[in-house]
Design a protein around this nucleic acid. Structure first.
Lengths: 341, 341
DNA sequence: AATTGGTTCTGAACCGTTACGGTCACTTCA
DNA sequence: TGAAGTGACCGTAACGGTTCAGAACCAATT
């Protein structure tokens, strides 16, 4: 009898002892968690859906921070955290259907991701992160447009007018190279789209022709990708005075490429990132810091007490411009660099 | 009918279409994963039990590496990974009972941990990591004794005879300070016990009185802990020529404490770590590298095809002594250091 | 002695799925 | 034409708990 295990007060100590005793003698391993979940309609876990391969989440510092925050919230609530094995390469959403969870957190997936669609069809509460507001589910994120816009304005005030941009993947297909305006506009990764738009708006206001600004995309989010993308931009237009990267990881790669070319950062080239990861801080990167841990925690909290609410909530966290040592005014005489190293 | 969803070949396309159509019309959200799990006796997930608070796993680079490897293995098998919220402070093992999983991976918990006991009572396959061989369950780990022994011998060959040791927590109770021989022997964390024994054996062989070697323990595994522990050892015995730390994190703290005291590493003081995390490599730390990612992956693989085996397996991975820049022969004239900074 | 109140204990219904075996219509072959 | 074979379809019984209604029991009150 399940009362013996779960409601010791509902029966006499004597009977409880006897029940437990015979249970042990018969080798009964205790109540089956799955059957319990079926009956109580509670799985005791929340599912996490990621853009990338599961293992990637443990390689990206920003994702790790998010996970830590989410784990913190789950821990507080005594809830488990299920990492759903959703391989973005395959369209197989079975893993989403198989997940026995009380709710989902969806972290930074493209807005046309079939896994996201599968999650939204499940009759459980959902929180999306770094996604556009879907209207009917909770959301947590930052104002990517505004944050990047203010970083761009900072560079503009330093005097930069000729820039290049390195961004993360914009859609599910691999496009390691230049990005057309059309592709920018239709990007399926909300975060990247917003950040690019933020830059475009700021520079547009001071008369820069956005269509002429080289924007290079990389599918893989690694330091090596950042380096090769920076190389591609610098090869195309050696006269740029600033390279804006949409993540710190990419920016770190850009820094190493600049170093390799003998460019003095920030005097020959300004490099900026986004996220505010620890490695960026150590490198003195000018960037935007976003509260990744807090984001994870907010997502968890939002999900875990979504029962009380009926209207979906949207939480926007604040960001902070970090003025580091990798941004400065461009050299007064641009031509100087024609004779550079 | 579940066949419509799961076995399209078992029925005609026409019927399937009709079934799905009415299902949609009735707002049927698809087969319930929990009920399915109950019926098929498959949860489609493995549980991970950690020593620490869940969130800690995302702060320790070695743990992150392990997680990445484990996630990789799960991903390959299309299995989910459930992080079980087992708070080590409380004795509440309910979370273990509640976890709907097909097996458990237990990562580096004390051998008297009640959560571990609860896992072993569950009738599912289990893999323990960094634990002594339990005989009846799979195990994956390294030879901590031998690895630390060879590091110690390296220091001995450099000429060190007077040393201090900084180690991680040895049991569930907090003991931030010196460690008695008795506490060393009865340590509940197998890994730490083995590493200490490895050092003791090596130095014992060259006539060092182990009982006189200051061993300082820290409960929290942080760089700050490493620094304060190093300070404690150096205050007690400023004449030591080497400080052996049982983890890289602690060693990084020891390095910063040495720097703070104006000690030249390695000439005034040799500092060593254990794990081989990236930060250690950047710092040029002399340490032992263990394949953390491979460890996680091995654990996952072991668990996921444990069905085929009947005998428990024990996998021991190899380690590698990393000779960095933080270890050197002690200054020929020890007294010199009396006049040091 | 009968009614009432309260507690402890028992049994049955239900959660939603899948596995399994049986029914039925329809084809094939003697 | 009838027997046997084939395949699609459907009904039902678990899976292992939790919950809840009500039976059984005991003590106290009328």
């Amino acid at each position: 009898m399940s009362n013996a295990y779960n409601r010791p007060d509902q029966l006499s100590p004597e009977l409880r002892r006897r029940v437990l005793e015979t249970a042990r003698r018969l080798g009964y391993p205790g109540p089956d968690p799955v059957a319990r979940s079926l009956r109580t309609r509670k799985a005791g876990a929340v599912g996490l859906l990621l853009t990338e391969n599961l293992s990637y989440a443990f390689r990206d510092p920003a994702a790790i921070g998010f996970l830590e925050g989410l784990a913190l919230a789950c821990e507080d609530a005594g809830t488990g955290l299920l990492l759903v094995p959703a391989n973005p390469e395959r369209e197989d959403v079975a893993a989403v259907h198989r997940a026995g969870v009380d709710g989902f957190v969806v972290y930074s997936v493209p807005d046309d991701d079939p896994h996201l669609a599968a999650v939204l069809e499940r009759p459980v509460p959902t929180v999306v992160c770094d996604q556009p507001d879907l209207g009917n589910v909770d959301r947590v994120g930052i104002d990517d447009h505004a944050a990047m816009n203010s970083l761009a304005k900072h560079l503009i005030s330093l005097g930069h007018r000729r820039i290049g941009v390195v961004c993360m993947r914009l859609a599910r297909d691999r496009n390691d190279g230049y990005v057309s305006l059309e592709r920018q506009r239709s990007a399926h990764f909300h975060v990247q789209r917003a950040r690019l738009a933020g830059i475009a708006e700021a520079f547009g206001e001071v008369g820069v022709d956005w269509a002429a600004v080289p924007v290079v995309e990389r599918f893989d989010h690694t330091i090596a990708s950042g380096a090769s993308a920076a190389a591609q931009v610098l090869d195309r237009d050696p006269q740029i005075t600033a390279l804006i990267c949409t993540s710190d990881i990419l920016a770190l790669g850009a820094l190493s490429e600049a170093r390799k070319r003998g460019l003095n950062v920030p005097h020959d080239l300004t490099v900026t990132g986004f996220d505010g990861i620890r490695e960026a801080e150590q490198a003195g990167l000018t960037t935007v810091r976003q509260p990744v841990l807090e984001k994870g925690r907010a997502a968890g909290k939002l999900l875990l007490d979504s029962a009380e609410r009926t209207r979906p909530r949207s939480v926007t966290l604040t960001t902070e411009l970090v003025v580091g040592a990798t941004a400065a005014s461009p050299r007064g005489v641009v031509e100087e660099r024609w004779f550079g190293p």
